[in-house]
Design a protein around this nucleic acid. Structure first.
Length: 724
DNA sequence: TAACCTATCTTTTTT
DNA sequence: AGATAGGTTA
């Protein structure tokens, strides 16, 4: 008897193979996660391998969480000792510990693409680039791709494409951009990987890590890029217990440097690799699977698999033709109501599309009709202007070297600190080799009007005071301090913007999310919080229990499955994207994307397309996607409803499910201190004066001052609070 | 410095 | 269509 008796023959072959290099070619829906989790359980329960020695790397937090929970279901508490992590979280963890070797402080901030764009933008202006052929956004994506392909600024400068103007721009910015990030004690997403990889060049450290993680597993190996490849292979080099799982037909991240060769060449890298193919699909009906197989076989890059299912037949695939994008949304909504009548719930249904912009038509209609829905990805909660403002305050408090975040908030709320003034301080900081924030403390040495001096000193001292407090204050208190000290809400109210209410709601939602998080993790520190919100991915917020229709890009749907799937916008120039028109490799990637989309469906699949579409403020004619033509007609059924659906009189607007949920990953408990404080004891605080202790919790205490109740973390509290 | 107007660009896809 | 950058004016 073995725990592996629960697996099919192929899955079992893979799970049994614990030592040595192992390649698991796992077709869509073939029980990949099941195989991997049972493999871990087998290692721990039946092979006596310490869970502490196992590292499993996934692409999203959601995948990591799911894997951890499923392993826990099999082996219990020991599962917590297995390191299940995304590449990025794993890297950040390592870099917090050892980043000083590369010249970073452990409180480094993480920049998102918005930050990257702003930084590149200022750099381009500083250098005086007049190149109109490119934009900061394009420069950012070029730089990210270069980083993840392992090309340094120096190497890029020697590249032969040097005559192109956009190339020159990228080349001029790349190195300076890196320097600026480092000065700000910040990393972008690519840096997390690049620096993790660089850390592993330290042989002593590498050996330590190799000894710690003697068994390495990588999920979605077809989507690893050069740097991730190097990280994995360095760690596994010592024991060669490397298990990679993937499917070359689902490689869809070429645009961010993913290299399909990593999986195709695994057997070259490890000639003694054991290879297992998982070809039984447990997810979809025969019709759906056959359609997917017919599409993907047009790809040269496909090795060819024999994906099969025991679920014979099934519904034909419904094709819906609409006159335009709006009608497409109507048709889908009507079909959705039909499905509801047949007994499906909203949560069984997912609408997939190629680009985020396509979600708009659905959102408008669903709001009007009061249909519960949730859009994953797109404009993230944390990227909204007002949320980002407050986060930028937190960024500076966490890491005052972060001049980029500082520049964002210097004049928000408006303090009459314009670009001219900021530049004076930037110059002063540069000349005196200090950070912009430090420079703000030297108002006397800089030529300024008296009013400005006062304003800047107020800002500077306000920040200093919160920075000091942040050592022992819970994030929620820091949040409140920021809002009150800098009167952020009155600033929002005074904007005279028609979205004031929404913005204030967002701020309140941010507060709620922090409070929710602190319920789970009482002693959450600012740095940990910022890290957490930087690394969330779109589908991490997916809640199985709530009943709403899910909308997301095909990219975001990878690894997920749904009873009913609508693929919207199946038109040439949309899917495949017009960007892939003249490039076979890109076209093949689009086809893999289509393959991913089709194979998400369990029972029912709809493919929709419109004859014209409104793009860039213009109506353009559209024809059905070539991919649709690759599906044999006998699998398709025309589900066209000729008459236009009657739009219901707008009923009372129901609020859609918010696009945002508090993070709720649990974290292991921190240290517990003996508290010398007791309820009703009197204390004094530097800033808030006299107070009375109202509650003593495990890791925090609450004190009532004249200004109101405040919470404090007990760690390091003695520096700030004194007993009387 | 801020407020207002006009011209231009945007949409691939994401940790 | 909507967002944003850049320029002009108060």
């Amino acid at each position: 008897m073995s725990i592996l008796d629960n697996l099919n023959i192929e899955q079992r072959k893979a799970a049994e193979r614990v030592e040595g290099p192992l390649l698991i070619l796992a077709g869509a829906g073939s029980g990949k996660t099941r195989t991997v989790t049972f493999r871990i359980a087998h290692m721990v329960l039946e092979k006596n391998i310490s869970p502490y020695k196992i590292l499993a790397v996934t692409f999203t937090n959601k995948a990591a969480k799911e894997m951890r929970e499923r392993v826990e279901g099999l082996i219990g508490e020991d599962a917590k000792r297995v390191m299940v992590s995304t590449f990025h979280s794993f890297g950040v963890r390592l870099l917090r510990m050892y980043g000083n070797k590369l010249g970073y402080d452990s409180n480094f901030n993480i920049y998102d693409s918005d930050d990257q764009k702003r930084l590149v933008n200022t750099l381009m202006k500083d250098i005086g680039i007049t190149d109109k052929s490119t934009t900061p956004a394009r420069v950012v994506s070029a730089i990210s791709k270069l980083k993840e392909e392992g090309i340094t600024p120096g190497e890029y400068a020697n590249d032969s494409r040097g005559f192109l103007e956009s190339y020159k721009t990228v080349s001029a910015v790349y190195g300076r951009y890196n320097t600026a990030l480092k000065k700000n004690n910040a990393m972008d997403f690519s840096d997390i990987l690049v620096n993790t990889n660089a850390l592993l060049d330290d042989l002593e450290l590498l050996e330590k890590i190799q000894e710690r993680y003697q068994y390495v597993m990588v999920d979605e190996y077809q989507d690893t890029n050069k740097i991730q490849y190097e990280i994995v292979n360095k760690i596994a080099a010592r024991y060669k217990n490397l298990c990679v799982v993937g499917d070359e037909d689902q490689s869809i991240y070429g645009f961010r440097g993913a290299n399909i060769k990593n999986i195709l060449d695994f057997e070259k890298d490890y000639p003694d690799a054991f290879v297992v193919k998982l070809e039984q699909n447990y997810r979809s009906t025969e019709n759906i699977l056959e359609a997917a197989n017919h599409v993907i076989k047009n790809n040269e890059s496909s090795r060819g698999k024999n994906l099969w299912t025991a679920k014979k037949g099934g519904h034909p695939i419904s094709v819906i033709e609409a006159s335009d994008g709006r009608e497409e949304a109507y048709f889908i909504l009507r079909e959705l109501y039909q499905l509801k009548k047949e007994g499906y719930n909203y949560k069984d249904i997912t609408i997939l599309y190629r680009t985020n912009a396509q979600s708009r038509a659905f959102e408008e209609l669903f709001v009007k009709q009061g249909t519960p829905y949730k859009i994953f990805g797109g404009m993230q909660f944390y990227q909204r202007m007002e949320v980002k403002d407050v986060i930028s305050y937190m960024n500076v408090i966490n890491n005052p070297k972060d001049s980029l975040s500082l520049m964002r908030i210097l004049n928000v709320p408006k303090r009459k600190i314009g670009p001219a003034t900021i530049n004076k301080f930037r110059d002063y900081a540069e000349e005196n080799n200090m950070s912009l924030f430090e420079a703000l403390g030297h108002t006397e040495e800089i030529k300024l009007g008296p009013a400005l001096k006062i304003v800047i000193s107020e800002f500077y001292n306000g920040m200093l005071s919160i920075i000091e407090e942040s050592e022992y204050m819970p994030v929620s208190e820091i949040f409140t301090e920021i809002l009150t000290t800098f009167k952020y809400k009155s600033y929002l109210e005074g904007l005279g913007d028609d979205r004031v209410e929404e913005r204030i709601d967002n701020i309140e939602e941010l507060r709620n999310s922090i409070t929710e998080l602190e319920k789970v993790e009482e002693d959450l520190r600012l740095g940990e919080y910022l890290e957490k919100i930087s690394l969330v991915s779109a589908t991490d917020e997916l809640e199985e229990s709530r009943d709403y229709v899910k909308l997301m890009t095909v990219h975001n749907s990878k690894g997920l499955e749904f009873p009913v799937v609508f693929i919207a916008g199946m038109e040439d120039e949309v899917f495949p994207s017009s960007k892939a028109d003249y490039d076979t490799n890109q076209l093949e990637e689009e086809r893999r994307l289509c393959y991913v989309a089709i194979t998400r469906a369990e029972k029912t699949l709809y493919i929709c397309h419109a004859n014209e579409r409104f793009v860039y403020g213009q109506t353009q004619p559209r024809s059905r996607s070539r991919f649709l033509g690759e599906i044999p007609p006998h699998l398709l059924e025309n589900k066209n409803k000729k008459e236009k659906p009657v739009q219901k009189k707008t009923t009372e607007k129901k609020k859609s499910i918010e696009n945002f949920n508090p993070l709720r990953d649990k974290k292991s408990a921190g240290n517990t201190l003996d508290l010398p404080y007791s309820v009703n004891e009197r204390v004094t605080h530097k800033k808030f004066g006299m107070g009375i202790v109202r509650a003593v919790n495990e890791k925090t205490i609450e004190v009532e001052f004249t200004v109101g109740k405040k919470k404090f973390l007990t760690a390091a509290i003695d520096k700030f609070i004194q007993k009387i």
